[in-house]
Design a protein around this nucleic acid. Structure first.
Length: 388
DNA sequence: ATAGGGTTAG
């Protein structure tokens, strides 16, 4: 086993290592090689560091354990670099690291999040061939993948099959994922029925289950049903609402123009010691902008700034929409230009908003210029561009 | 022994 000093020497003048050196010296970590690997993995904050560490790990003799590789894979997956994570998984396999259900579940999750649930099921086949028993994490990843691809019938079939054939015991995540799928398909009735079915099992629903259905009801403008479910969750189930619950309900109220109730709820959440976050403020900004009430939106923004909340692209995109709606294209353009100055990168939604604004306000020259910029960025076929 | 999942805004 290598001690700490030897390990540091071994790593040479690598920037990532130097960066974590100070924490090493102040920490009380054991100097064993393996605790060092775990320690380094938990400090990963970007893809490059992760790839660098993987490369270094793969050259060790003996190889670090599957646990360490899986920890690293998990870090990459959490950063949403699904393709890279899959690449690393493949490299891991060719290095001869004995993969297990943990690493398999990450690989399957990555396939599914890349809209490649077909490949996810192929990896499931590998599990069976290698006598790795798929667990509930693996099946949840596959179920989520089918929902993501709008393959709701197959999702339902998989869900039913798992239960009928007792392939795994469905847990709250599996129920919630199936409920999300039903909601996505506009089937609130069946989603609620599934919530009721859960009550007859020993699998208890939680805040995510409720948030999912409450959100779906809000999106369908069934705000009163949403509140009924909200009250059931709090008073019958004793589940405390979180910031997502409040954001969802406030969004539902705002979209119906029920401002008084929205502001009451905003106060209620603060009374409950749940602070509004950027999401909350963005909901308000967007709702105001969609009604052309840009002044009110600007007031919300000044409160955000007061509270140290950084405006993000969603905030700016809403503002652009608001100014476009009022035909104030110079102001809209100013917001657009300020995005880059603040270190953010305008996305396809930003461009669409401004393009749309120019079209509706009959500024064809500016619109064409936007459109050409979008072509350069490869966004030419986006919906609003067709309004040209 | 160790490692993994689901919910909100433009």
């Amino acid at each position: 086993m290598m001690n700490r000093t030897a390990f540091i020497k071994f790593r040479g003048n690598n920037s990532f290592l130097l960066h974590s050196l100070s924490s090493f010296q102040s920490g009380t970590h054991k100097a064993s090689l393996h605790s060092n690997v775990s320690f380094l993995i938990h400090k990963i904050t970007n893809l490059n560091d992760a790839l660098e560490l993987f490369d270094e790990m793969s050259h060790r003799q003996p190889l670090p354990s599957v646990v360490h590789f899986t920890q690293l894979l998990n870090a990459v997956t959490k950063m949403k670099h699904f393709s890279s994570s899959l690449d690393l998984f493949k490299q891991m396999c060719s290095l001869g690291v004995p993969v297990n259900e943990y690493s398999m579940s990450i690989a399957i999750k990555c396939c599914c999040q890349l809209y490649r649930s077909k490949d996810g099921f192929a990896v499931l086949g590998c599990c069976f061939r290698r006598a790795i028993a798929p667990d509930v994490y693996i099946f949840n990843a596959l179920l989520d993948g089918l929902v993501l691809e709008d393959r709701i019938l197959e999702a339902e079939m998989l869900f039913k099959k798992l239960i009928k054939q007792k392939l795994c015991e469905p847990d709250v995540v599996m129920y919630s994922t199936m409920i999300k799928g039903l909601c996505k398909f506009g089937n609130n009735v069946t989603a609620l029925a599934l919530l009721r079915l859960m009550e007859q099992t020993n699998c208890k629903s939680n805040i995510v289950t409720y948030n999912t259905i409450i959100d779906s009801l809000c999106k369908d403008k069934m705000i009163d049903d949403a509140f009924k479910l909200f009250k059931e969750m709090v008073f019958r189930e004793g589940i405390l609402p979180d910031v997502i619950t409040y954001n969802t309900l406030i969004c539902g109220l705002c979209k119906l123009g029920r401002w008084d109730e929205a502001s009451k709820l905003l106060k209620e959440m603060e009374d409950e010691n749940i602070s509004p976050n950027v999401h909350t403020f963005n909901v308000l900004v967007d709702a105001f902008c969609k009604e052309g009430k840009v002044e009110e939106a600007e007031v919300v923004i000044s409160i955000m700034i007061e509270r140290g909340k950084a405006l993000d692209l969603v905030t700016y995109n809403s503002l652009i929409d608001g100014y476009c709606l009022r035909g104030e294209m110079i102001k809209a353009r100013e917001i657009f230009d300020s995005i880059t100055l603040r270190g953010l990168i305008p996305d396809v939604v930003t461009y669409n908003s401004l393009l749309n604004g120019y079209c509706k306000n009959r500024n064809i020259e500016e619109a064409m210029q936007m459109f050409h910029e979008m072509i350069v960025k490869g966004w030419a076929l986006c919906s609003c561009a067709q309004t040209l």
